[in-house]
Every structure is written in structure tokens, then in C-alpha cells.
Simulated scan of single mutants.
Amino acid sequence: MAEKKPGIDQALIRDLANILNDTDLTEIEVEQDDLRIRVSRNGTPVAMPMQATPAYQVPPAIAAAQPAAAPHAAAAESGHNAKNAVTAPMVGTAYLAPAPGSRPFIEVGAAVKEGQTILIIEAMKTMNQIPAPRSGKVTEILVQDAAPVEYGEPLIVIE
């Protein structure tokens, strides 16, 4: 006889979505037994078995080269205003354009509007559009295309 799978707790997903709205978070993730649920403002809810969740790892070649080529480290030393920096809301890979070879979402000197997509972060095989938190002028892009990013890492400065 076929094994009955328990249904996804839709009330839990609604509660998590309400927490996102109430706290102004970008995403929230919870684990319950062998189920992980992630709710994000810029994506769709994801539910997958724990054993199928890939671990994020930076390949050794990239990790070794990163200190010399980290654009955000140089920008941090140049003294950009931290309150104007847009930071990574998650760990993943940052893409500055919607597709390889496409025109970037933004360029230095460009005017952006609040809510406009400024880049994409791929996390867990999901493309998450990152919106501008405020309107202004892009004064620095601190990350390279297809570069790994950490949670809280400065990505773009909008003055």
C-alpha cells in the first residue's frame, strides 16, 4: 500500500509570511522534523526534505583567490557610507544582469527607484531578485558578476 505523505502546513506558511510583513524581513526559514520551509518576499516558498538540501560551499580555487579580488574589501577601505550600502539578504551567487550577455540591471551613475531590481542572488537554485531599498543614484557597485556573496555583505551603494 502507498505511504501517505503528510500535507504541508499551509497555516505555518501563512504565519511565516505574516512574520515577514510584520518584521520587514526579506526571508525566513524553519526546520521541522525532516521538512525545511523557506519563505521569501522575492521568490516562492520552498519545501524540501532535509537530506536533499545542498550545503553552500565556496570552491577552494575561488576561496583562495577571493582576498585579492574582493571588490567590497577595497570599497570598505575607501570609506563609502555604510548606511547607503545595500547588503546581501542571503548567501548565494550575485548576478548583475538577468541573463549572461544581457545588459546589467544597473550601472554606476544610474538613477534607481525604490523596488527596482538591482541584481539577482541565486540561492539554493532559486533566482532571488534584489530590489532597491530606496530611490537614489548608484555610486558604487561593490560586487562582481557571478561572485559568491555572504549574508550582510555590502553589494551596491545608493546615495
Rank of each mutant, 00 (worst) to 15 (best):
S40P: 04
K83C: 07
M48P: 00
P45D: 05
F105W: 02
V30Y: 01
A111W: 07
P98M: 10
I130A: 02
E150R: 13
I13Q: 09
P104S: 01
D145L: 10
P54C: 09
Q129M: 07
I19Y: 12
L119M: 15
H80D: 10
I13L: 12
S135F: 08
A65C: 03
P67A: 10
V143G: 01
R14L: 13
L25K: 04
T117S: 05
V30E: 00
M127P: 00
H72I: 09
T53A: 06
V91R: 07
P104Y: 04
A99T: 14
P154T: 11
S78C: 05
T23K: 05
E140I: 06
A88F: 00
R134C: 10
P45F: 05
G109S: 06
E3Y: 14
G43T: 04
A97M: 10
N81L: 06
E122D: 06
G79H: 10
E122I: 02
P45W: 07
V143P: 01
A123E: 03
P45A: 08
N21K: 13
A69N: 15
V30W: 03
P71G: 10
E77Y: 07
K125A: 08
I120N: 03
P133R: 02
A52I: 10
V149G: 06
P100I: 09
P54R: 11
V143Y: 03
R103V: 06
G136H: 03
P89I: 04
A147F: 01
V30C: 04
A55M: 12
E159G: 08
R36G: 10
E159Y: 02
P54H: 09
M127K: 02
A132P: 00
A61E: 13
G115R: 01
V86I: 08
R103W: 04
N84Y: 09
A55Y: 07
G136R: 00
H72D: 15
G92H: 04
E150S: 14
P54F: 08
A74C: 08
S78N: 08
E114R: 15
L35V: 13
R38L: 05
A88V: 02
N18P: 12
Q66F: 11
A76W: 07
R36A: 14
L16G: 04
M1N: 15
I158Y: 00
A11H: 15
L35R: 13
P98N: 12
L119D: 01
Q32W: 07
I62K: 05
E114F: 12
P60L: 08
P131E: 04
L119W: 01
I118H: 00
T26V: 11
A65F: 03
